[in-house]
Design a protein around this nucleic acid. Structure first.
Length: 176
DNA sequence: AAAGTGATCATG
DNA sequence: ATGATCACTTTG
């Protein structure tokens, strides 16, 4: 079942957990569809989060994070890797979830490479797009929380927050 | 351990 | 216009 605009309005931390076990779907130009289960995510929460790209305010790049939840935020990192984020939360509060891993492609740059996601999909509407969307089957895996990766520029307090979530081996539970 | 790569943003 | 910095990956 495909996520609707409403589903993306939850806050980024809750959404980062909820996305685990969901299926990232990508329709290519030739009509074929790639699907992969999400196994690792990270939450970035507002201007108050010094790890968040929007912590210095709205810029051309971060503008999409100020949209209401349900859009893709894709940016280029280190000149070679596209990173896929899911914008979440209400309008004007910049929150997003970085998709760090899917089954068969763990690592944010590997996710986009495997799923053929590029900056051409920046600002894509995940609720209505025919090229990129997310589906849930109503189950949720066990997961663990840890510190986010690659945010040495953030304040010590924000570096320590356990906003990285990774699926663990174990039994799935029914999502409520 | 260190290079590789280019957009982005703050500075001048 | 210039330059530092980067939600990383691969190679040695």
């Amino acid at each position: 079942m495909r996520l609707t605009a409403q589903d993306y309005r939850r806050d980024a931390v809750a959404m980062a957990k909820a996305l685990l076990g969901m299926t990232l779907c990508r329709r290519l130009d030739d009509g074929s569809v790639l699907r992969a289960r999400i196994v690792e995510t990270e939450a970035y929460f507002g201007e108050e989060d010094t790890a968040c790209h929007a912590h210095r305010g709205r810029t051309p790049r971060t503008d999409v994070m100020y949209a209401p939840g349900g859009y893709a935020y894709v940016y280029l990192c280190y000149g070679m890797h596209d990173m896929l984020n899911v914008v979440t939360g209400p309008a004007d509060h910049p929150e997003a979830v970085l998709v760090r891993g899917v089954e068969g492609a763990v690592g944010p740059g590997r996710v986009t490479k495997a799923m053929q996601v590029t900056r051409a999909l920046n600002r894509e509407n995940l609720a209505s797009s025919e090229r990129l969307w997310i589906e849930t089957d109503g189950t949720t895996p066990r997961f663990k929380a840890s510190a986010r990766i690659g945010i040495g520029y953030a304040s010590p307090r924000d570096q320590v927050r356990k906003w990285r979530f990774t699926v663990m081996a174990g039994n799935e539970r029914k999502r409520k």
